[in-house]
């Protein structure tokens, strides 16, 4: 009787050990790539890094969407982005949440170079490093890299940065 119980316990311990180690091995080999979905979402977002969604940038917002955040918080992307996200995530497309801003045509900023005092504040604010310049030197914007996020406008002490429509290249 005791032998039977011991055999049963031993067998099941062995079985569990075998399964456990097999799973452990499989887990190492097939390391779940949770980031793959985040990458897919990130590729749809417009990469303005404007922060209007209340996240620090597009990738953090993509990570949040992957965790179930609403898909309608991206004003620069507008309806097209929401539709693409809805298709990817098999959700209903919802209208843009205007609390985060309204959709506008792509914009870029231009620094009025005569007025620039070279304070470097806009360089620190730029999320995509599209402004070049150094202290006490005139700054300028690399138009191709500018995403039109407007984050450089508030820090400028002399308001020498203008928003313009992006001209199609």
């Amino acid at each position: 009787m005791t032998a039977n119980i011991l055999i049963a316990i031993f067998t099941f311990a062995l079985l569990a050990l075998l399964l456990g180690s097999a799973l452990c091995f499989a887990a190492k080999r097939l390391k779940g790539d949770r980031n793959a979905l985040v990458e897919q979402i990130n590729a749809i977002l417009p990469q303005t890094q404007c922060g209007q969604c209340d996240y620090a940038g597009c990738r953090p917002y993509a990570a949040a969407i992957a965790q179930g955040e609403a898909i309608n918080k991206c004003p620069p992307g507008g309806e097209a982005t929401i539709q693409a996200l809805a298709n990817l995530l098999e959700q209903e497309a919802v209208p843009l949440n205007t609390e985060h801003g309204t959709h506008e045509a792509p914009q870029v900023v231009i620094i009025r170079e005569d007025d620039c005092i070279g304070c470097t504040l806009c360089i620190q604010a730029c999320p995509v490093d599209a402004i070049v310049g150094t202290a006490k030197q005139m700054h300028t914007v690399i138009t191709d890299a500018c995403t039109g996020c407007k984050l450089c406008l508030p820090p400028c002490p002399v308001d020498c940065i203008d928003l313009t429509q992006r001209v199609a290249a």
Binding site: L23, G32, Q40
Partner: peptide, 21 residues
């Protein structure tokens, strides 16, 4: 049940790897 639980775990890992969506 022990076997099934193990197999499902494996399936989950495989699926997470191949098709996270």
């Amino acid at each position: 049940i022990l076997l099934i639980a193990g197999v499902v775990q494996l399936t989950e890992m495989v699926l997470n790897k191949t098709n996270p969506l």
